[in-house]
Design a protein around this nucleic acid. Sequence first.
DNA 1: CTCAGTTTGTTCTCCTGTTCACAAACTCCT
DNA 2: AGGAGTTTGTGAACAGGAGAACAAACTGAG
Lengths: 252, 252
Amino acid sequence: MTSPRSARTGAPDQGAAGGTYAKPPERGIPEATVARLPVYLRALVGLSERGTGTCSSGELAAAAGVNSAKLRKDLSYLGSYGTRGVGYDVEYLRYQIAREIGVTHDWPVVIVGIGNLGHALANYSGFSSRGFRIVALLDADPQRQGEDVDGLGVRAFEEMEALVEQHGVAIGVIATPAPAAQGVCDRLVAAGVTSILNFAPVVLSVPDGVDVRKVDLSIELQILAYHEQRKSLAAPDRVPERLVRLDGAVGA
Amino acid sequence: MTSPRSARTGAPDQGAAGGTYAKPPERGIPEATVARLPVYLRALVGLSERGTGTCSSGELAAAAGVNSAKLRKDLSYLGSYGTRGVGYDVEYLRYQIAREIGVTHDWPVVIVGIGNLGHALANYSGFSSRGFRIVALLDADPQRQGEDVDGLGVRAFEEMEALVEQHGVAIGVIATPAPAAQGVCDRLVAAGVTSILNFAPVVLSVPDGVDVRKVDLSIELQILAYHEQRKSLAAPDRVPERLVRLDGAVGA
DNA sequence: CTCAGTTTGTTCTCCTGTTCACAAACTCCT
DNA sequence: AGGAGTTTGTGAACAGGAGAACAAACTGAG
């Protein structure tokens, strides 16, 4: 009844109160959990700034906007960093999550495409405060080159390879117009970049071993629109004049 | 063996070639499918602009960057809009998806917080081309008010309620600094907005019936960093100087 | 008309992720 | 010290999505 297979990770648990180092999980954190770790990290930073020393899974879950059971299971993939009957030490857990994600050290980043969005990204404080150091801004437009954005000059594409090599850049951000994105992507990959955050509304094709994440502003709005439409259809009262004649439902 | 329960939708299929109107699904499109429909829509627009009249599920899947079986299953939730042995009519399918998402008619939108990101959003052409019409830009800073962004003046918060009412705004975009976001959110909801796209790095709390989607730029980068770190650990060769002393693994 | 080739729509199976529920472990009070 | 109260960590049921595989439906050639 008590644990038919207790040694799932192979290590004999070793008491969990010794403290030297708890457990090296190293293998297989589910993708869904990885996506939530940064949320927990941000919530912990908030709690820390408010002077909280310890917090329960319930409190942290509320701050992160998730279920407390899910939070505990997520954290259990990293190791046993809590204390039963007490909760989690905010600073300790914060460090452990930061280490697991990899934001305890600096990640040099290049941003390609310094239009409106590129400007916004270059100025976004959330990057630098989380270990992401923008080392270069690149744009194809000679008119933009030399322009100063947040203390960094905009450089030409031609310098991409040298900059990536020099700073050891592994992560690139693409904020170019759609037609230019694949070309920029290919060039980043050739230069040695292995992770790409893509804001251009295209599906990038990359070789194996390169990660791409896509952020598409209009897709998010369209998803909202879908649900909004459903809401209006479900409750036909309180519908303003914006939704008349949606379908052929009225006339027929 | 052949279909123990054939009448899953209840309707007798009625031939699918009549053409007046195929099927009103109206119920239960999986969330994962909803999130992909805009991607298909964009791929279809691309095909349409290139003059393609018909396409198979394989072609469309390639353009959208997904599996063809998944694409067919997704489309089947909307109804039977393809022809076996032929494929999908690009224009017809495009319209059907657009209608299902709700982008065949205009969605008036307000953007709150006209900093760097708000500027970028206001200028983003992907919105207007998909039925999202920005009807107001709002900012708390009196210095920004009156400034002209893309033909629209920046207005004060005080006008929010009147603008939402006047234009029948259902969707709001929050691009304010984190501390202001919850207050803005409450006010938008009180004014009648029922869908919110949140760029501020906070967890918004809203009443039931209000949808919130969050876009967090730094979280995406952190997810990339996690995988990048794993890649470096898995292949310790070709690691530049940026990843020395990651863990206590070397000294001990 | 018949038959081979093509492509959709759907079913079935597998896998990932979520949630519940509870034993183990800790604290605090008496 | 002992017992009541808390809280974590995790096994196990449950739900939902992904992919393979196949029958149904269409086209076109002979």
